Simulated scan of single mutants.
Amino acid sequence: MKLKSLTAVVCFATLGMTGCASKYVAPEEYSGFLKSYQNLKEEKSPSGGEVMRWIKPGVDANQFTSVYVEPSQLYPKPQPTEKVPQKTLNGITTYYDQVLQTQFAKELPLASGPGPRVLVIRPAITAVSAKTKSLQPYEIIPIALIAAGVSTATGIRDQDTSIATEAAFIDGSTNEVVAQVVRKGAGAELENSSQVMSANDAKAVLDGWARDMAKSFESLKHK
Rank of each mutant, 00 (worst) to 15 (best):
M52P: 04
K106T: 10
K184C: 03
Q195P: 03
K215T: 12
I125C: 01
A13P: 15
K4P: 14
F169E: 02
Y138C: 00
K133L: 02
Y138F: 03
E70N: 08
A61D: 02
V120F: 02
P142Y: 12
T174S: 08
V99Q: 15
I143P: 00
S31F: 02
L15M: 08
S47R: 07
I55H: 09
S36W: 00
S72F: 03
E28F: 05
F64W: 07
G48F: 01
E166S: 02
T174K: 14
P123L: 13
T94A: 15
S134I: 04
T14S: 05
K56T: 15
A147N: 12
Q101M: 06
V118F: 11
K133P: 10
G149H: 06
S129T: 14
G91D: 10
I146Q: 13
Q136R: 11
P27S: 11
Q180T: 10
S22M: 10
S198I: 06
G208R: 15
Q159H: 09
Y75E: 08
F104T: 15
R117T: 11
I55Q: 07
T7F: 14
K44S: 11
R122Y: 07
L110V: 05
S193R: 12
V59I: 15
K23L: 09
A61W: 08
S162R: 12
Y75S: 10
D158W: 12
G113A: 06
V118Q: 08
K77H: 04
L74Q: 03
D212M: 08
L100H: 13
R117L: 03
Y68C: 01
P114G: 06
A13M: 11
D160K: 03
M52R: 00
S198T: 14
Y68G: 01
L145Y: 01
Y68N: 01
R53F: 13
Q86Y: 15
I163C: 05
V182T: 02
E50G: 12
Q195R: 13
D60M: 08
A199Y: 13
Y30R: 00
Y37I: 13
K215Y: 12
S216C: 09
E176Y: 05
A127P: 00
A147H: 05
L89E: 06
K203H: 15
T126M: 10
K215F: 12
P116Y: 01
G58L: 08
S36K: 07
K221G: 05
S173D: 15
I146S: 14
I92G: 04
D97C: 04
K83R: 10
N62I: 04
Y37C: 13
I121F: 01
F217I: 02
M1E: 15
R157T: 09
S151A: 11
K35N: 13
Y138P: 00
M52N: 15
Y95F: 13
S219G: 07
A111E: 08
S193V: 09
A214P: 02
R183I: 06
V120W: 01
A164L: 07
K215I: 05
P116L: 06
A124H: 03
D60Q: 11
D201S: 14
Q103D: 13
P71W: 10
K83Q: 12
